[in-house]
Computed example of a mutant assay.
Amino acid sequence: MTDPRGTQFDLDQYIGMKVKKARLDEGLKLVDVARISGISQGMVSKIENAQVSTSLETLNKLCSAIGLSISKLFNDFDRPDGGAQFTKAGSGLEVVRRGTEKGHTYQLLTYKRGGKTAFEPFMITMDDLSEIFPTFSHPGEEFIYLVSGKLVYRHGNHLYEMEAGDSLTFDAEIPHGPEKLVEVPIQLLSIINYADD
């Protein structure tokens, strides 16, 4: 396990930290835990300070005394580190797409270096009511979610009147795109999935 500062804990340190936190959360003193568990106060202190490795039997008594189950004790120990890509609002990578020349702003919200891209999420901003739109057609399946504003969106021969909170999912090979902006500014989240069928 790694703490928020990136320090790696070994098993004894991890057990000590979790046991001490559970004891303090319960408002128990070392002497209370020793009395309830039947484990000496010195041994409880050594376990909490990772000065000794303890048997499962002793650990079970200790956990019972502080109201911590063995399964809960270990639930965080082997958790993978993770490492998601975090993008702050408004800081996506601005990219050029077909709609850029029409005044659309495209922010790519995540990117992957190397390998095949499975999906692309964009935040698209539109703010010109008089705009005339081209239709778009590209591989993949697309999901769009209208964050703000109102517009009429075309997919093939169908028109959808969309307002904030509405979404569409469709085959992106079929011509699609905004037909008419009704209320600006518009923010549209678009996620294109390129995964193979």
Rank of each mutant, 00 (worst) to 15 (best):
I124Q: 01
M123E: 10
G140K: 08
P139G: 07
E141Q: 11
I132G: 13
T117S: 09
F122K: 06
L146R: 03
G114D: 02
H138A: 01
I144Q: 03
V147W: 03
L146N: 09
K112G: 12
R113H: 03
G114Y: 08
P139Q: 12
E131Q: 08
F122Q: 11
E142M: 06
F143M: 10
S130E: 07
F119V: 06
G115H: 00
L151A: 07
F133V: 01
F133E: 14
I124F: 04
S148N: 08
G114I: 07
T125C: 12
I124G: 03
P121M: 09
F136I: 15
D128N: 05
A118N: 13
K150Y: 00
K112N: 12
D127W: 02
G114N: 02
F136E: 15
I144V: 00
L151S: 10
D128G: 06
G149S: 00
P134V: 15
P139T: 08
F119E: 02
T125G: 13
E120A: 03
Y111I: 05
F136L: 15
L151E: 06
P121D: 01
F119H: 01
D128P: 10
G114K: 02
L146Y: 03
I124M: 03
T135N: 11
E120C: 11
P134G: 15
V147N: 00
P134Q: 15
L146I: 11
P134A: 14
K150M: 00
P134E: 14
S137W: 11
G114P: 05
K150Q: 01
F136T: 14
E142H: 02
H138D: 08
D128M: 07
P139E: 11
F143G: 10
G149W: 10
I132R: 09
Y111V: 01
I132Y: 13
M126R: 11
K112P: 13
A118L: 05
E142K: 00
F119M: 06
Y111R: 08
P121V: 04
I132N: 13
P139S: 05
G140Q: 03
K112V: 07
M123P: 13
A118K: 05
P139I: 11
L129F: 08
E120V: 06
